[in-house]
Design a binder for these strands. Structure first.
Lengths: 260, 260
DNA sequence: CGACATCTTGAGCTGGCTCAAGCGTAGTGG
DNA sequence: CCACTACGCTTGAGCCAGCTCAAGATGTCG
């Protein structure tokens, strides 16, 4: 589950920021010489699986990126109900976006984080607009992801939701080079899936069975195997105005703090 | 529906950014001299009700704030299903976060926007970290709002969702001084409410009736009248770890681009 | 190899949906 | 000034997607 893909030559200039900023950030994270000469030293930290990285309400000195492993953002209701806001895969920004975390963040696997004090980023942002750009793009991207998830929960049925999530994760994993043989690691129990999609565990199980029997994808034993990507996209919705949303915004350069 | 409250003296320094940045931004928007001496000239634009401000996929030169009126972000599925991602009230950042919009934005009432070219913000961001801070805080705040909505759709039932939305909007309206007599303007049809909460119009109607009959709130004739705020909060969920979430993050200063 | 978590399947229930019809109100045009 | 239309609100009636409860089966880890 390492970010092997990131080792390969990165020719994109971060000045023309698109989602490839992720790779640059991750390159930073992996310690390779980075292209924007950003003077931030990232510390590495390991956290075992099934632990919280931070809790709702925590005020954190450091800003974190996920170098490898899976994590997830979640929130709890008073009566124990849980909702999972998003999954985090290698290369993702862990956060928090705000110094005070608005949600919990837990690990699904053993995890390696790369982190640096928030103040370092503040300083660097001022002198390296490309970095500020990248961070804004990260936020905008996750915002888009959330609104997509929101649409799912609001207006898609169980089958569509599941298909949508599987495709979304496929695209994200592909982007960081973690797809092999049309399949990807997926250390997510059906219970967690249920809390992500707003379903019951039982119904998640039946939904997965149905997708499997129809030849779209198999989910289990810690892996997702996509058998019919286009079909799965169709199930996910006759929506998605274009591919643009699957690709997480390749089209969109130049956020606020445009690089010079 | 003007931002009267914003006219009053603003003593907060934006250097210690919290959600009060909204007021500063709005102050900019209203043309008053601003405190950070930011050299951005905002143009005013009016848009009639029931029009789109921008469409999904549009690439926009300008960044916009809502000076008065109501608007909403929404997305469409291929088969006509619609989901409303968020409402925008006076003082809100309209966006888009990314130059290329990831969703539609429509007006519910006649609306006044204040806007400036994105490039102006890019430049200003570099020289006025306080502004960059504020914009990041805006994003983080809306992120929090979305994740809250996500929890609603995933794990709350119709009654809880409705109560939660009404309280959320109450808090947001209060923040910009638009509450009078425990009530606020609410130019939202039951159909739009349905598309926001992931319910059918019929069920929205029944849910509102139930909340009205139980003495919590009345919704109709373009207004929400809160009759029992605490009760409504209880209905919304024995969740909300603290008040923090209702208050949209007053606690949280110093995002990435901390002001000096 | 025992204990515990996870997955699976059956059976019956229900919250919220769909369909359908009636009503009030605001425009709109003749 | 009134008829007409359109839109939004309301309520009834029946239905179904997804839920809950229950009970095995299958891992998996110390």
């Amino acid at each position: 589950m390492k970010l092997q893909a990131l080792a390969a030559g990165q020719t994109d200039r971060i000045g023309n920021v698109n989602i490839d900023f992720l790779r640059h950030i991750s390159k930073l994270a992996t310690g390779c010489e980075n292209e924007i000469g950003m003077p931030i030293r990232l510390e590495t930290r390991r956290i075992p699986k099934h632990h919280d990285i931070f809790a709702e309400g925590d005020t954190l000195r450091d800003v974190m990126f996920l170098r490898d492993g899976w994590a997830y953002r979640y929130r709890l209701l008073g009566d124990g109900r849980r909702h999972i806001v998003n999954f985090l895969i290698p290369g993702d920004f862990v956060g928090p976006y705000f110094p005070t975390a608005a949600h919990f963040c837990g690990t699904l696997t053993d995890v390696t984080l790369c982190q640096a004090p928030r103040s370092d980023f503040s300083d660097a942002n001022r002198n390296y607009p490309a970095l500020a750009s990248a961070l804004e793009a990260i936020m905008a991207t996750e915002y888009r992801l959330l609104s997509e998830r929101l649409v799912s929960l609001g207006r898609r049925n169980a089958r569509e939701r599941m298909a949508h999530l599987l495709v979304e994760l496929y695209e994200r994993m592909r982007r960081v080079g973690l797809i092999t043989d049309n399949s990807y690691e997926f250390p997510v129990t059906q219970e967690i899936l249920a809390d992500t999609l707003g379903l019951s565990v039982v119904h998640v199980n039946r939904t997965l069975r149905s997708l499997r029997e129809d030849g779209f994808a198999t989910v289990g034993f810690g892996r997702v195997c996509i058998r019919d990507l286009d079909g799965l996209r169709d199930v996910a919705g006759a929506d998605e105005p274009t591919q643009a949303h699957w690709s997480l915004g390749t089209s969109a350069p130049v956020p606020f703090a445009a690089a010079s």
